[in-house]
Each structure stands twice: as structure tokens, then as C-alpha cells.
Simulated assay, not measured.
Amino acid sequence: MMTDFSKSFLEERITLYKQDLLNDIVPFWIKHAVDHEDGGFTFCLNRDGGIIDTDKGIWQTGRFTWLLATLCNEIEPKEEWLSLARHGANFLDRYGFDEDGKMFFIVDKKGNPVRKRRYAYSESFTAIANAALYKATKEEFYAERAMQLFHNYRKLIHEPGIFPPKFSMHRNMKGIGTLMIGIVTAQELRKNLNDTTYTQYIHSCIDEISQNFMKSEFEALMENVAADGSFIDHFDGRILNPGHALEAAWFILEEARVNHHNPSLIELGTTILDWMWRWGWDQEYGGIFYFRDVKGLPVTEYWHDMKFWWPQNEAIIATLLAYELTQDPKYANWYQLIHDWVFEHFPDRQYGEWFGYLHRDGRLSTPLKGNIWKGPFHIPRMYLMAWQIMERIKEKF
């Protein structure tokens, strides 16, 4: 069992994360995803990077644009990264919006609309992309676009009647996803636009998560609750999503870190992590489950016990941040457990990047590298944040 991080251990991991990010993950997507003919990026890729579908996800375009601009801001102002970030933002600006101002979910290769969804995540990810580009360029257009998109996001998710209701009033539910994304979107805008007015919204989302979604009787963070925050004893109400919960935990821990190690936020974030690690970690095979039932009943989603890439990414960030803020060796041990399992199973040593979908025991389910859901976001964000967290920990030696 790992009880602490040595300086040499930190240096080795920093080197691993840095080299994988800059020499494998980012180059894979730049080589295979950039559409120089019609603009934007093509994310639906086979194991070797070959294109298997030319449709383009707007969420993913915003995410990759954010990543490229963030690399410019936090690693080096590399012209290739900045040029490609502009390339992504231009595609979003030209093809991402319907006539009513709502953003699309999927467009085809040339930017023609394919699908819209009731969600507003295209707005949130395009907002953080523009905010990061503003910091990289200081061009006011990007700041104005980021602020407007975040305003649209808040309006779309908070004002009733804009979308047809998803549930009837007989079982009106709300999910944690919009609150989580609201937190991290506002954090990115606050950082890149240098605007502290976003803090109030961040803390309002955290308060709602704490008051309505945390259920001490189950020691669990719920994925869905009733409109008044009460527990719903049906499939959708009992479901747990450990990946979402661990992601929420580190969003809250990051807020604690940037607010002078706020003790109440540290307690909240680590409580969520403690609860949901116990729900999510697979004691038999390792890795983080996709879904669990809070009463231990069968889950209907067929992928409930699969190991997707992104919950593992969030677990690595959450455990590292928890260790940084508390120095509790428990989190060092959990970090090592998830790191070892992930790096044994997910990276593709032959063609680069990561597989995304594994069976419970770690066997490969599909060899694809990208689709409408998997792209250059969770994995490179994990590498970058793990590198940065470990640099901060090392500075204390």
C-alpha cells in the first residue's frame, strides 16, 4: 500500500504524464482529426486513426478547441495549437448555431445540421473554448462569445418552458449533470476572463448538489432526484453514476484549492469522493463501474459494469487533488490503484492514444478511438491536471 509520494516518484509520474500528453495523445488527434477541407474536426476514428464516420460532434469540437487553447495558455504559446484552436472556433461559429440561437449536437462533414438535443452542453463547451481563446489571444470577440454562451447555457437550463419537459409532473426529476457542468464552465470563464463574478454561480451549484443530491442515508451522491430534492425509488431515481460523482468531487475540491484551501469545500469534496469510491471501485477486477443501484438492485443499462475511459480519468484527478489538499495517505493509495489499472488496460501501445470501452474484466469491447462521445477531452485533461497537481505537490519538498 502506498502511504505517500516521494520526490522521485513524483518526478517519474510528471515525466510520464507530460510525455504521453505531448508526444502521444495530442499528436494523435492533430494528425487524424483535423479536417483541412471542410473545417472543424472529425472525431469518429478507428484504432489506427482512420475515419469511420464523417459526422462532427459540436460538443467535441468545443472540447478540442478548449484543449488546444488551454495548451497554449498553460504549457507554451505554440503556433500550431493556436491556429488549430482558431480553426475549431471558426467552425463552431459558422456551423454550430441554429437560426433560433440554440446550438446543434451533431453536424455532417460540411457543417449541415444533423441533430439537436434538449441539453445545453454544446453551449457550455463552446463557452470554455472561447474563454480559453480569449486568454490566448486577448481578442475581445472570444470573451464576448464566451459570456454570451454561458448566459445562454444558464437560461436554457434554468428557465422553465424553453424545452418541452422531459418528465411529466407526476414524476418530475432533475439531474446533477447541469450543475456539474455549470460549476466547471464558470470556473473556466472566471480563470480565463479574469472575472470573479462567476464565483457566486459556482457556489450556488455546489450548494444545490450538497443539499439535494447528497443522501447520507445511502452515503451516495445521486444522479437524479425529484424536483424538490427527494429520493425517487424507481430505476432512474436509484441509479448512481460514479464517474459523474467523482468528477463533481474534484470540481468542488478544485474550488476549495483556488479559495485558499476552503475547509468546508474540502470536507464536501472528500466526502463525495469517499462515498463514491466505495460505490464505484470494482473490488474484483479493478477500475470504476459505470452505473450502480443505490439499493443494490439490478441496473437496467446493459453497460452498467463496463469500464469506460472517462470515469477512470475523473478518479485519477479526484484522488490526486484530495491527496494534495489533505495529505491523507488513503488517497495516495486509491490514486495508485486506479493509475495502475488504467495504464495496464487503456493505452494502445501499437497505434497510440487510448481505447475507450472495456468489459468489466478489462477485455477490449471495441477498438475505436473516437466517436460522438469519446474525443480529445477527458484523457488529455487528466494528463494535464495530473501533471500540474504533482508539480504543486513536488514544490512542497
Rank of each mutant, 00 (worst) to 15 (best):
H378E: 11
T326L: 04
L337E: 15
I58H: 08
I157V: 12
W303N: 09
R238A: 06
T300V: 08
F377Q: 10
R292W: 10
Y323H: 06
R13P: 04
E219H: 13
I106W: 00
N46K: 10
V184H: 13
I106E: 02
N224G: 07
L320E: 04
L321G: 11
G111C: 06
R115Q: 09
L265I: 05
S168A: 08
S168F: 06
P380F: 11
E254Q: 14
I52N: 09
L364Y: 04
D98G: 15
E314K: 01
E188Y: 12
R117I: 13
M390Q: 08
L384F: 12
A129K: 00
K374S: 03
E11G: 06
S264K: 15
I128F: 12
T197C: 15
Y335I: 05
D340G: 12
L82V: 08
A318K: 01
T271M: 02
R363F: 03
E247D: 05
E11R: 04
M147T: 14
R392C: 01
F41S: 04
R86D: 08
A143P: 08
G49D: 00
F346M: 06
F346V: 08
F41A: 01
H234G: 10
G356W: 03
I51V: 01
K369S: 07
G50V: 11
W59C: 05
A131G: 12
G111K: 06
P242L: 02
K394C: 02
T199E: 14
H87D: 00
N90R: 10
F343Y: 15
I393E: 02
H359R: 12
A186P: 02
P77S: 00
T326R: 14
L133M: 13
L156K: 10
D38T: 07
K135C: 07
T137W: 06
F218G: 05
S210G: 08
I288V: 13
A322V: 05
I317L: 10
Y383G: 08
R257S: 09
A248R: 01
G269H: 03
H339A: 08
S168Y: 03
F28D: 01
D305Y: 07
